[in-house]
């Protein structure tokens, strides 16, 4: 089980392969990557701010909750901060379980909770140079209620 919060880019393929190779008792691995989305070529940069210390604690608590709810062999969360360009990978989660239902459900749970309960904030700079904070969405908050 691991949580990493870092500014450096990471090799998504290598992380996925390494994660899958490291689990011995699992029959299923689910991986997800979040990417800086550029709606219509308008985005120049996305700056991700976070709360050092609380971020790690929050992610570890979310991961612990996932482990309590599903039979997981392993889980991995990597989340970046700092300035990112469109198309760059922001974060990933990976889950491993004996059967795929647990791995899929746990991965969705991790994503839902880290969207609204991990202290990250996104600031966008457009190609024209204007900036704005990405607002939290009501549906992201609503997504927590299904768990």
């Amino acid at each position: 089980m691991a949580v990493r919060v870092q500014s450096e880019a990471f090799e998504y393929g290598a992380e996925c392969a390494g994660f899958a190779a490291s689990v011995t008792d699992a029959g299923a691995v689910v991986t997800f990557a979040g990417i800086v989305r550029d709606d219509g070529g308008q985005l120049r940069e996305m700056e991700i701010e976070h709360y050092p210390g609380m971020t790690e604690r929050a992610l570890e608590a979310i991961e612990a909750e996932a482990r309590a709810r599903w039979q997981l062999s392993d889980a991995l969360i990597i989340h970046r901060f700092g300035p990112l360009s469109p198309g760059e990978i922001i974060m990933m989660v990976a889950t491993a379980a004996r059967h795929r239902a647990d791995a899929f459900a746990a991965a969705e749970f991790l994503m839902d909770f880290l969207k609204s309960r991990a202290p990250f904030w996104k600031k966008e700079t457009t190609a024209r140079g204007s900036t704005g904070w990405v607002a939290a969405k009501d549906e992201d908050e609503a997504a927590l209620r299904r768990w």
Partner: peptide, 26 residues
Amino acid sequence: DQELADFDASLAGVREIAFFPPMTGG
């Protein structure tokens, strides 16, 4: 102290308090 709390929470024993907008991870 790095745990989410409500506005009516007590500050007794607290050392660090943080204010921020709704979070947008992922």
